[in-house]
Nucleic acid binder design. Structure first.
Lengths: 157, 157
DNA sequence: TTTATCTTCATACTTTAGGGTGATTTTCAT
DNA sequence: ATGAAAATCACCCTAAAGTATGAAGATAAA
C-alpha cells in the first residue's frame, strides 16, 4: 500500500527514536528484574523449592496412595430370574424318570391326559400309568397337588 | 556391695580420665557436626524446605481431594419375593368375585371340590357352580389351566 | 447273559370334574 | 324399596381323572 509506505518514510526518525526508547525501557525493566532476582535469590530459590516440592507431594499422594473408595452396594432386584434349573437331586431322591418328568411338565401346563398322550404319541393308558406312578412318588392324590409340590421342589418351572 | 566400692576407689583417677576423654570426644564430635551444619546451612535449609513442603503437598492432597466414589451395582436375586399383591385390576377386568377368588385359591392348593366345599361350609354343587363361572371368566377348560393362568395374572400367589 | 428298570399298553372299575339348566336367598347400591 | 349382582343349592348327564392289576418290549447295568 502506498499510503503506509509514505507514513514510514516521513516519520522515520521519530519511529526510530520511539523504538530506541522502548528498547531502553525494556532493558531498564530487565535490569530491575535482575536486580530483584539477585537480591532475593535465596528467597526465590526457597520459594521455588517450596512450590516444586509441594507439587511433588501432591503428585506423590495422588499417584501412590490407594484411591479412597467408598463402596456402595446397590441392590438390583431382578423381577424374575427365569433361570429355571432342574433339581436333579430331588428327581433322584424321588426316583422320577425322564418320561415321568416330561408328563409332569405337560400336566403343569394344564394339558389333559388325552392331550398329553397325543403330544407324546402314546396311548391315554400310558399317560395314566405315568401319572399314577408320579402321584405315588410325589405322595399326592390329585394333579393340582402334583403341580404345586413339584414346583416347590423345582422339578418344573 | 563392698567389692564394687573397692573397685571405684582404687581406679578413681583412671575412671575420671576416661570420663574426661569421653566428654572431649563428644565435644569434638559436636563441633564437627556444628561445622558441617554451618558449612552446609543452605543445603540443609533447602532440604528442610523440600521435606516440609513435600509433606505439606501430601497432606493437602489427602485432605482436600474428594474421595473417589465407586458405585458398584450388586445384583441380588430374591429367591421368593413372598410379597404377593393381588392384581385387583385383573380381578375387576375379569369380573371375578371374592368368593370365586377364594375358591380359586383353595383349588390352586390342590384341594378337591369336595374338600373346598367342606372348608367353606357349602355344598359341593355350590363349589361346582363357582368353578364353572371361574372357568368361563378365565376362559379355561380345566382347573390346572385355571391355576396356571391365575398365577400369571397374580390373582393367587 | 441276566436282572432290574423304564416304557408301553390294556381292561375294568370308581371317583371326580365339568357342563347345562333352573331356582332361591343374600347383599348391596341406587 | 327395588333391581342387579353375588352366593347358594339341586339334578342330570358326560367327560375326564384316578385306581388296580397284569403284561410285554426296550434298554441299560451287573
Amino acid at each position: 500500500m502506498p499510503g503506509s509506505t509514505n507514513f514510514l518514510t516521513k516519520n522515520k526518525s521519530i519511529i526510530l527514536y520511539g523504538i530506541f526508547l522502548a528498547i531502553m525501557l525494556l532493558l531498564l525493566k530487565w535490569l530491575e528484574l535482575r536486580f530483584i532476582l539477585i537480591n532475593h535469590a535465596f528467597e526465590i530459590y526457597a520459594g521455588s523449592i517450596a512450590i516444586i516440592f509441594t507439587a511433588l507431594g501432591i503428585w506423590l499422594a495422588l499417584k501412590l496412595t490407594k484411591p479412597k473408595t467408598i463402596l456402595i452396594e446397590k441392590e438390583v432386584f431382578t423381577e424374575k430370574p427365569e433361570t429355571f434349573v432342574l433339581n436333579e437331586k430331588e428327581m433322584i431322591r424321588l426316583n422320577i424318570s425322564k418320561r415321568e418328568l416330561e408328563v409332569l411338565q405337560l400336566m403343569s401346563e394344564g394339558l389333559s391326559n388325552q392331550e398329553i398322550a397325543a403330544k407324546l404319541f402314546v396311548s391315554l393308558n400310558t399317560i395314566k400309568t405315568h401319572i399314577a406312578r408320579l402321584f405315588d412318588k410325589l405322595e399326592v392324590k390329585r394333579r393340582t397337588q402334583a403341580v404345586e409340590i413339584s414346583k416347590k421342589l423345582s422339578l418344573i418351572p
